[in-house]
Computed example of a mutant assay.
Amino acid sequence: MTHVEESTRTPLMQERSAVRGWSGVVALAFGTFTVVTSEMLPVGLLTPMGDSLRVPEGVAGLTLTIAGLVAAVSSPLLISVSGRLDRRVVLCALMAVLVIGNLGAAWAPGFGVMVVARVLVGIGMGGVWAIAAGLAVRLVPAKSVGAATSLVFSGIAVASVLGIPAGTYAGALAGWRAAFVAAAGLALVVLIALAVLLPRLPAEQAVPLGGLMRLSGNARVRTGLIVVGFVVTGHFAAYTYVRPVLEDVSGAGAGAISTLLLVYGVAGVAGNFISGAGAARSPRRTLLVIGAVMAGTLALLPVVGGSLLVAGVLMAVWGLAYGGVSVSTQTWILASAPEAREGASSLFVGVFNGAIALGALLGGLVADGTGITAVMWLGAALAVGAVVAAATGRAPADG
């Protein structure tokens, strides 16, 4: 926009533009909420899913792994293949894929169809996350980018608090297939909201696969991806098995564990916004604090978590810290490659989802081989690795 054009914009025009920009940010937040809820939905539905599809719970659990791995691989490919297409059109197309994937999961007569459906969910999830992550900067004024980015990523934190429990509750009331139908309906509503509320968003530049590989050679981007790998792997190595850990350490029953996880989730939402503000000023300092707090909390839980009150405090602190991981690491990545935000975001989403799968795998191996509480020590050690990487690697300049 030229200076003359800027000077001729009336306050009413500027106000309408701001309202539409923030409306688009809210739609993107609902988008991230929907894709993460869709990805994680099987967590609370494994037993009825396995019974209905006639597979063991361990095999049914692969539906989560499949979606995560597909998202990890597909997000960089989708950014490259979509070229210069309008990002509003691409987001709507990916939400349509998510609708089909969730409906396919609801209909699945056997495990093979379920796998295909979860592949579609992984494609939709990886693409929406990669694109949405870098759009806040294009929708709001520069002074509001940090808050808008936090709002987009709040969808991820809120999904862990409301999305998965709501899906589990729907499954208990109407059957596990109804939970996937509900997810499909939500994805359709978000598709319509994105189409209506987002402005045209032409791609800033095409991102060929070779360009993505060159981005990984950027020292700041590479350090950010290493930090993501350590902290997310550590978190999911521990969090995947948090229920049996709490049962073993504190003797918590099902009701108490539900309360502790709710406390964790609510703290995570708060952590998202607190860390978003901090990361806008200094991603390195924010992630150093997050990694150190996570390491200390995970190390302490098996030692002093015998009391439900102490366990609750530690779960709240853990949630507060991890709730800021997504927005802080994404801020690091975007600040490291401002000229190639979508390409950098696609690498970020790939590493993030790969780390989720790796963390669950490593945690399972350690739990089976050493004991369930050992997963907390593993998570703490990997969080320390994140601190070391953030402290010694190249970081973007402070804001």
Rank of each mutant, 00 (worst) to 15 (best):
V317D: 04
G305H: 04
M40V: 08
T233E: 08
V145N: 08
G379I: 06
L41I: 05
V55R: 06
R243H: 11
A72L: 09
G234R: 03
V327G: 03
V115N: 04
S275M: 05
G305A: 09
A96F: 14
V161R: 00
R9G: 11
P302F: 11
L91E: 07
V128M: 09
R284S: 05
P56C: 11
P208M: 12
A256C: 00
G126C: 13
A219N: 02
W318C: 04
F236Y: 13
A397C: 04
N102E: 04
N272K: 02
A182L: 15
A390T: 11
S74Y: 10
R138K: 11
P199D: 09
A130S: 15
P141R: 13
L188R: 01
P199N: 10
D248H: 12
A299F: 14
V121P: 02
L201G: 07
V152W: 05
A96E: 13
S216C: 11
A18I: 04
P302W: 12
G104V: 07
L85E: 09
V388D: 06
G323E: 01
L120K: 02
V249L: 11
A380D: 00
A60I: 11
A132G: 10
L139F: 03
W129C: 12
A374W: 00
L362V: 14
G359P: 05
V25M: 11
R54A: 15
T329M: 10
I156D: 01
G343Y: 00
L382A: 01
I131P: 00
A105L: 09
G217M: 12
V263H: 07
E247K: 05
S258W: 01
V366I: 15
F153P: 05
G291I: 00
V115A: 02
A267P: 00
F33D: 01
Y322D: 03
S82I: 01
L361R: 04
A295G: 12
V269N: 10
F180W: 13
L308D: 06
R222N: 03
P302C: 12
L298S: 11
V89G: 01
L45C: 06
A60T: 10
V99S: 03
A381M: 07
M294T: 05
L288N: 03
G271L: 04
E5I: 12
I164Y: 06
A357F: 14
R84N: 10
A383C: 08
D86Y: 08
E39W: 08
H235C: 06
E339P: 00
T34A: 14
T297S: 13
G268E: 00
S82L: 08
V245Q: 00
A374P: 04
L12F: 11
A381T: 05
T329G: 03
F111Y: 15
V43A: 13
V232R: 04
G393H: 04
V269T: 08
T286P: 01
N218L: 07
A148Y: 07
S258D: 12
L365V: 15
L201T: 08
Y264S: 10
G146R: 00
Q330I: 12
V26Q: 01
W107A: 14
S307F: 07
A187I: 08
R84A: 13
R341W: 01
G371E: 06
G268N: 02
T168A: 13
F236T: 00
F352H: 10
P244A: 05
V25T: 09
V161G: 01
A67W: 06
A106G: 15
A237L: 06
G364K: 10
L62H: 14
R16Y: 14
R281L: 12
A133N: 05
